[in-house]
């Protein structure tokens, strides 16, 4: 199981501060942060602790199996971000 960040993300990035396993990227310390459209959760690293979802000021993080209909595409989009990273 994993949590998923959806398209309403505003890059507040408080989630990156509370994540115990640093699975939310790009973090503000990374150069990529300045231009990223949103943040993503690595499904292979996420330990399902819910800290990010509790901290998000705009409720843009959901458990993958409880994604509202309008956001279902983001399960794959979060995972794809990390796949593309591995390749590059």
């Amino acid at each position: 199981m994993t949590y998923v960040i959806v398209g309403s993300c505003v890059n507040d990035a408080v989630c990156t501060e509370v994540c115990p396993v640093d699975c939310i990227q790009p973090a503000p310390e990374a150069g990529e942060f300045a231009t990223t459209e949103m943040l993503y959760i690595d499904p292979d690293v996420c330990i399902d602790c819910k800290a990010c979802a509790d901290a998000c000021p705009i409720n843009a993080i959901y458990p993958a199996e409880h994604l509202p209909d309008k956001w279902t595409a983001y399960r794959e989009i979060n995972a794809a971000f990390f796949r593309q990273r591995m390749r590059s």
Binding site: S8, I58, N59
Partner: peptide, 12 residues
Amino acid sequence: DHADRRQVIDVY
């Protein structure tokens, strides 16, 4: 129709 984003105001 992006009301969820407005919540950032309440928190800050």
